[in-house]
Protein backbone atom coordinates (compact mmCIF):
# COMPACT_ATOMS: atom_id res chain seq x y z
CA UNK A 1 0.00 0.00 0.00
CA UNK A 2 1.29 3.42 -0.87
CA UNK A 3 1.92 5.89 1.93
CA UNK A 4 0.54 9.39 1.74
CA UNK A 5 3.70 10.85 3.30
CA UNK A 6 5.74 9.40 0.46
CA UNK A 7 3.27 10.44 -2.23
CA UNK A 8 3.39 14.05 -1.08
CA UNK A 9 7.15 14.08 -1.67
CA UNK A 10 6.98 12.04 -4.87
CA UNK A 11 8.14 14.11 -7.84
CA UNK A 12 5.21 12.89 -9.95
CA UNK A 13 2.40 12.18 -7.49
CA UNK A 14 3.28 15.18 -5.32
CA UNK A 15 2.50 17.53 -8.21
CA UNK A 16 -0.95 18.82 -9.05
CA UNK A 17 -2.07 18.59 -12.67
CA UNK A 18 -5.56 20.01 -12.33
CA UNK A 19 -5.03 23.42 -10.82
CA UNK A 20 -7.11 24.90 -8.04
CA UNK A 21 -9.65 27.61 -8.72
CA UNK A 22 -11.25 25.78 -11.63
CA UNK A 23 -14.99 25.70 -12.15
CA UNK A 24 -15.93 22.27 -10.84
CA UNK A 25 -18.53 22.24 -8.10
CA UNK A 26 -17.44 22.11 -4.47
CA UNK A 27 -16.85 18.53 -3.40
CA UNK A 28 -16.80 17.12 -6.95
CA UNK A 29 -16.10 13.39 -7.06
CA UNK A 30 -15.00 13.61 -10.68
CA UNK A 31 -12.49 16.30 -9.88
CA UNK A 32 -11.01 14.21 -7.07
CA UNK A 33 -10.82 11.22 -9.42
CA UNK A 34 -9.11 13.27 -12.12
CA UNK A 35 -6.67 14.68 -9.58
CA UNK A 36 -5.54 11.17 -8.62
CA UNK A 37 -5.59 9.81 -12.14
CA UNK A 38 -3.20 12.56 -13.17
CA UNK A 39 -0.99 11.98 -10.14
CA UNK A 40 -0.51 8.46 -11.47
CA UNK A 41 0.03 9.48 -15.09
CA UNK A 42 2.19 12.56 -14.62
CA UNK A 43 2.84 15.39 -17.02
CA UNK A 44 3.72 13.37 -20.12
CA UNK A 45 0.06 12.79 -20.80
CA UNK A 46 -2.34 14.08 -23.42
CA UNK A 47 -5.92 14.22 -22.22
CA UNK A 48 -8.94 14.06 -24.49
CA UNK A 49 -12.18 15.11 -22.86
CA UNK A 50 -15.35 14.48 -24.83
CA UNK A 51 -18.36 16.58 -23.83
CA UNK A 52 -18.93 16.27 -20.10
CA UNK A 53 -18.64 18.37 -16.96
CA UNK A 54 -14.94 18.30 -17.73
CA UNK A 55 -15.40 20.60 -20.69
CA UNK A 56 -16.67 23.19 -18.23
CA UNK A 57 -14.81 22.49 -15.00
CA UNK A 58 -11.52 23.33 -16.73
CA UNK A 59 -12.41 27.01 -16.62
CA UNK A 60 -12.90 29.73 -19.17
CA UNK A 61 -10.70 30.68 -22.10
CA UNK A 62 -7.92 31.89 -22.09
CA UNK A 63 -7.34 30.21 -18.74
CA UNK A 64 -7.34 26.51 -18.06
CA UNK A 65 -7.25 24.26 -15.02
CA UNK A 66 -5.32 21.38 -16.60
CA UNK A 67 -1.53 21.64 -16.45
CA UNK A 68 -1.20 19.07 -19.23
CA UNK A 69 -2.18 19.18 -22.95
CA UNK A 70 -5.94 18.93 -22.84
CA UNK A 71 -8.23 18.56 -25.82
CA UNK A 72 -11.92 19.29 -25.57
CA UNK A 73 -13.75 17.01 -27.97
CA UNK A 74 -17.19 16.29 -29.35
CA UNK A 75 -19.43 13.99 -27.34
CA UNK A 76 -19.16 10.77 -29.33
CA UNK A 77 -15.59 11.30 -30.44
CA UNK A 78 -13.40 10.69 -27.38
CA UNK A 79 -12.00 7.26 -28.13
CA UNK A 80 -11.60 7.76 -31.89
CA UNK A 81 -9.73 11.01 -31.29
CA UNK A 82 -7.36 9.09 -29.04
CA UNK A 83 -6.78 6.56 -31.85
CA UNK A 84 -5.88 9.52 -34.06
CA UNK A 85 -3.57 11.06 -31.48
CA UNK A 86 -1.79 7.76 -30.92
CA UNK A 87 -1.34 7.38 -34.70
CA UNK A 88 -0.23 11.00 -34.98
CA UNK A 89 2.31 10.49 -32.20
CA UNK A 90 3.59 7.37 -33.94
CA UNK A 91 4.05 9.39 -37.13
CA UNK A 92 5.69 12.24 -35.24
CA UNK A 93 8.08 9.92 -33.41
CA UNK A 94 9.66 9.13 -36.78
CA UNK A 95 10.66 12.79 -37.03
CA UNK A 96 11.11 13.63 -33.38
CA UNK A 97 12.17 10.84 -30.98
CA UNK A 98 11.40 13.07 -27.99
CA UNK A 99 7.74 12.26 -28.50
CA UNK A 100 8.24 8.86 -26.83
CA UNK A 101 6.52 7.78 -23.64
CA UNK A 102 3.44 9.94 -23.89
CA UNK A 103 0.31 8.46 -22.38
CA UNK A 104 -2.97 9.22 -24.13
CA UNK A 105 -5.93 9.39 -21.79
CA UNK A 106 -9.57 9.72 -22.69
CA UNK A 107 -11.43 11.12 -19.69
CA UNK A 108 -15.14 10.85 -20.35
CA UNK A 109 -18.32 10.96 -18.35
CA UNK A 110 -20.95 8.24 -18.20
CA UNK A 111 -22.98 9.79 -21.02
CA UNK A 112 -19.89 10.04 -23.22
CA UNK A 113 -18.98 6.45 -22.43
CA UNK A 114 -22.08 4.42 -21.75
CA UNK A 115 -24.45 6.13 -24.17
CA UNK A 116 -23.22 8.27 -27.06
CA UNK A 117 -19.58 7.25 -26.89
CA UNK A 118 -19.85 3.48 -26.66
CA UNK A 119 -19.52 2.87 -30.39
CA UNK A 120 -16.27 4.79 -30.61
CA UNK A 121 -14.99 3.23 -27.40
CA UNK A 122 -15.80 -0.26 -28.62
CA UNK A 123 -14.10 0.48 -31.94
CA UNK A 124 -10.94 1.78 -30.29
CA UNK A 125 -10.82 -1.23 -27.97
CA UNK A 126 -11.28 -3.63 -30.89
CA UNK A 127 -8.46 -1.84 -32.73
CA UNK A 128 -6.33 -2.16 -29.62
CA UNK A 129 -5.46 1.53 -29.55
CA UNK A 130 -2.71 1.99 -26.97
CA UNK A 131 -4.47 4.37 -24.59
CA UNK A 132 -6.28 4.57 -21.27
CA UNK A 133 -9.97 5.25 -21.30
CA UNK A 134 -11.36 6.36 -17.96
CA UNK A 135 -15.05 6.86 -17.44
CA UNK A 136 -15.92 8.98 -14.44
CA UNK A 137 -19.43 7.84 -13.78
CA UNK A 138 -21.66 10.25 -11.91
CA UNK A 139 -24.66 8.30 -13.10
CA UNK A 140 -26.45 11.01 -15.08
CA UNK A 141 -25.90 13.89 -17.50
CA UNK A 142 -24.76 16.25 -14.78
CA UNK A 143 -23.33 18.96 -17.02
CA UNK A 144 -26.73 19.55 -18.60
CA UNK A 145 -28.48 19.35 -15.24
CA UNK A 146 -28.99 15.72 -14.15
CA UNK A 147 -30.75 13.88 -16.96
CA UNK A 148 -30.99 10.10 -16.99
CA UNK A 149 -28.16 8.17 -18.63
CA UNK A 150 -27.44 4.51 -19.21
CA UNK A 151 -25.40 4.75 -16.02
CA UNK A 152 -28.26 5.94 -13.81
CA UNK A 153 -29.26 3.25 -11.31
CA UNK A 154 -32.78 1.88 -10.99
CA UNK A 155 -35.06 4.02 -8.88
CA UNK A 156 -32.96 7.18 -9.03
CA UNK A 157 -34.60 10.50 -9.64
CA UNK A 158 -33.28 12.58 -12.51
CA UNK A 159 -34.89 15.50 -14.32
CA UNK A 160 -35.99 13.14 -17.09
CA UNK A 161 -37.05 10.35 -14.71
CA UNK A 162 -39.04 12.42 -12.23
CA UNK A 163 -40.63 9.32 -10.67
CA UNK A 164 -37.41 7.33 -10.64
CA UNK A 165 -35.59 5.37 -13.36
CA UNK A 166 -37.32 2.16 -14.39
CA UNK A 167 -34.26 0.40 -15.83
CA UNK A 168 -31.03 -0.83 -14.32
CA UNK A 169 -27.53 0.52 -14.89
CA UNK A 170 -25.65 -0.71 -17.94
CA UNK A 171 -22.61 -2.77 -17.05
CA UNK A 172 -19.98 -1.19 -19.26
CA UNK A 173 -16.84 -2.52 -17.51
CA UNK A 174 -18.02 -6.03 -18.37
CA UNK A 175 -18.80 -4.97 -21.92
CA UNK A 176 -15.24 -3.72 -22.14
CA UNK A 177 -13.94 -6.91 -20.60
CA UNK A 178 -15.77 -8.83 -23.32
CA UNK A 179 -13.54 -7.00 -25.84
CA UNK A 180 -10.63 -8.99 -24.46
CA UNK A 181 -8.54 -5.90 -23.74
CA UNK A 182 -5.56 -6.39 -21.41
CA UNK A 183 -6.84 -4.32 -18.49
CA UNK A 184 -10.26 -3.43 -17.15
CA UNK A 185 -10.81 -2.05 -13.67
CA UNK A 186 -13.43 -0.34 -11.59
CA UNK A 187 -12.66 2.25 -8.96
CA UNK A 188 -14.41 4.79 -6.82
CA UNK A 189 -13.57 8.40 -6.02
CA UNK A 190 -14.10 7.50 -2.35
CA UNK A 191 -10.96 5.34 -2.59
CA UNK A 192 -8.40 7.59 -4.32
CA UNK A 193 -5.38 5.43 -3.58
CA UNK A 194 -7.03 2.34 -5.04
CA UNK A 195 -7.76 4.40 -8.16
CA UNK A 196 -4.20 5.75 -8.19
CA UNK A 197 -2.69 2.28 -8.12
CA UNK A 198 -4.98 1.00 -10.83
CA UNK A 199 -4.05 3.89 -13.11
CA UNK A 200 -0.35 3.29 -12.36
CA UNK A 201 -0.83 -0.31 -13.40
CA UNK A 202 -2.76 0.64 -16.54
CA UNK A 203 -0.03 3.07 -17.54
CA UNK A 204 2.50 0.26 -17.77
CA UNK A 205 0.33 -2.00 -19.93
CA UNK A 206 0.36 -1.76 -23.73
CA UNK A 207 -2.99 -1.77 -25.49
CA UNK A 208 -6.43 -0.51 -24.55
CA UNK A 209 -7.01 -0.04 -20.84
CA UNK A 210 -10.41 0.77 -19.41
CA UNK A 211 -11.13 2.06 -15.91
CA UNK A 212 -14.62 2.87 -14.71
CA UNK A 213 -14.69 5.23 -11.74
CA UNK A 214 -17.80 5.89 -9.71
CA UNK A 215 -17.76 9.62 -9.01
CA UNK A 216 -20.30 10.86 -6.45
CA UNK A 217 -21.91 14.13 -7.49
CA UNK A 218 -23.29 16.26 -4.67
CA UNK A 219 -25.66 18.45 -6.70
CA UNK A 220 -26.92 15.61 -8.90
CA UNK A 221 -27.28 12.93 -6.26
CA UNK A 222 -28.57 15.42 -3.74
CA UNK A 223 -26.28 15.07 -0.77
CA UNK A 224 -24.29 17.67 1.21
CA UNK A 225 -20.88 18.24 -0.34
CA UNK A 226 -18.92 17.06 2.67
CA UNK A 227 -20.42 13.58 2.31
CA UNK A 228 -18.94 12.90 -1.15
CA UNK A 229 -16.33 10.46 0.16
CA UNK A 230 -18.74 8.78 2.52
CA UNK A 231 -21.30 8.25 -0.24
CA UNK A 232 -18.58 6.68 -2.39
CA UNK A 233 -17.52 4.43 0.45
CA UNK A 234 -21.11 3.35 1.11
CA UNK A 235 -21.56 2.54 -2.58
CA UNK A 236 -18.72 0.05 -2.24
CA UNK A 237 -19.61 -1.26 1.21
CA UNK A 238 -23.21 -2.01 0.23
CA UNK A 239 -22.03 -3.72 -2.94
CA UNK A 240 -23.83 -1.25 -5.20
CA UNK A 241 -20.44 -0.59 -6.74
CA UNK A 242 -17.91 -3.38 -6.98
CA UNK A 243 -14.17 -2.77 -7.11
CA UNK A 244 -12.28 -5.21 -9.27
CA UNK A 245 -9.59 -5.62 -11.88
CA UNK A 246 -9.59 -7.86 -14.93
CA UNK A 247 -6.04 -8.45 -16.14
CA UNK A 248 -5.77 -10.49 -19.33
CA UNK A 249 -9.18 -11.93 -18.58
CA UNK A 250 -8.47 -12.83 -14.98
CA UNK A 251 -10.69 -11.08 -12.52
CA UNK A 252 -9.75 -10.17 -8.96
CA UNK A 253 -11.79 -8.22 -6.48
CA UNK A 254 -9.94 -5.30 -4.99
CA UNK A 255 -10.02 -3.15 -1.88
CA UNK A 256 -13.04 -3.45 0.39
CA UNK A 257 -14.93 -5.44 -2.25
CA UNK A 258 -12.64 -8.41 -1.59
CA UNK A 259 -14.63 -9.36 1.48
CA UNK A 260 -18.09 -8.74 0.12
CA UNK A 261 -18.64 -11.85 -1.96
CA UNK A 262 -20.53 -13.27 0.97
CA UNK A 263 -23.82 -11.42 1.18
CA UNK A 264 -23.77 -11.12 4.93
CA UNK A 265 -20.66 -8.96 4.74
CA UNK A 266 -22.44 -6.44 2.55
CA UNK A 267 -24.36 -3.63 4.14
CA UNK A 268 -27.97 -3.28 3.00
CA UNK A 269 -28.30 -0.80 0.13
CA UNK A 270 -30.54 1.38 2.30
CA UNK A 271 -27.38 2.67 3.97
CA UNK A 272 -26.22 3.97 0.60
CA UNK A 273 -29.47 5.29 -0.82
CA UNK A 274 -30.68 7.02 2.33
CA UNK A 275 -27.77 9.44 2.06
CA UNK A 276 -29.00 10.73 -1.28
CA UNK A 277 -31.94 12.91 -2.22
CA UNK A 278 -32.19 11.25 -5.63
CA UNK A 279 -33.58 8.13 -3.92
CA UNK A 280 -35.87 10.09 -1.59
CA UNK A 281 -39.07 8.90 -3.22
CA UNK A 282 -38.07 5.32 -3.92
CA UNK A 283 -40.72 2.86 -2.73
CA UNK A 284 -39.88 -0.04 -0.41
CA UNK A 285 -40.75 -2.43 -3.27
CA UNK A 286 -38.30 -0.68 -5.56
CA UNK A 287 -35.60 -0.85 -2.90
CA UNK A 288 -36.11 -4.61 -2.96
CA UNK A 289 -35.83 -4.63 -6.76
CA UNK A 290 -32.60 -2.69 -6.53
CA UNK A 291 -31.25 -4.91 -3.75
CA UNK A 292 -32.08 -7.97 -5.84
CA UNK A 293 -30.20 -6.48 -8.79
CA UNK A 294 -27.17 -5.82 -6.58
CA UNK A 295 -27.22 -9.39 -5.28
CA UNK A 296 -27.54 -10.67 -8.83
CA UNK A 297 -24.40 -8.73 -9.83
CA UNK A 298 -22.53 -10.47 -7.05
CA UNK A 299 -23.90 -13.88 -8.00
CA UNK A 300 -22.66 -13.34 -11.54
CA UNK A 301 -19.23 -12.42 -10.19
CA UNK A 302 -19.21 -15.48 -7.99
CA UNK A 303 -19.77 -17.71 -11.01
CA UNK A 304 -17.08 -15.92 -12.98
CA UNK A 305 -14.58 -16.10 -10.13
CA UNK A 306 -15.38 -19.78 -9.53
CA UNK A 307 -14.97 -20.62 -13.21
CA UNK A 308 -11.57 -19.02 -13.56
CA UNK A 309 -10.01 -20.65 -10.52
Amino acid sequence: MVKLKELIKDPVAGEEYFLKGNSSCAGCGGELAFRWIMKALGKRTIVVAPASCFNVTIGLYPRAGPAIPYLNMAFAAGAATCSGIVAGLAARKKLDPSMEDITVLCFAGDGGTIDIGIQGLSGAAERGTDFIYICYDNEAYMNTGTQRSGGTPFGAWTTTTPTGKKEHKKNVPMIMAAHGIPYVATACAGYPLDLYQKVLKAKKIKGTKYIHVLAPCAPGWRFPTEQAIEVGRKAVQTGMWILYEIEDGKMTLSGPSKNLLDKKNRKPIEEYIKLQGRFRNISPEDVKVLQKWVDRQWEDLKIRLACQS
Binding site: L19, K20, G21, S23, I58, L60, R63
Partner: peptide
Protein backbone atom coordinates in the same frame (compact mmCIF):
# COMPACT_ATOMS: atom_id res chain seq x y z
CA UNK B 1 -5.17 28.41 -26.73
CA UNK B 2 -5.76 28.32 -22.99
CA UNK B 3 -2.86 28.25 -20.58
CA UNK B 4 -2.62 26.49 -17.21
CA UNK B 5 -3.87 28.85 -14.61
CA UNK B 6 -4.55 28.89 -10.89
CA UNK B 7 -8.05 30.22 -10.75
CA UNK B 8 -9.22 29.35 -14.23
CA UNK B 9 -12.62 30.51 -13.03
CA UNK B 10 -11.37 33.12 -10.62
CA UNK B 11 -10.77 33.21 -6.91
CA UNK B 12 -13.17 30.45 -6.02
Amino acid sequence: LSLPNYGSLGET
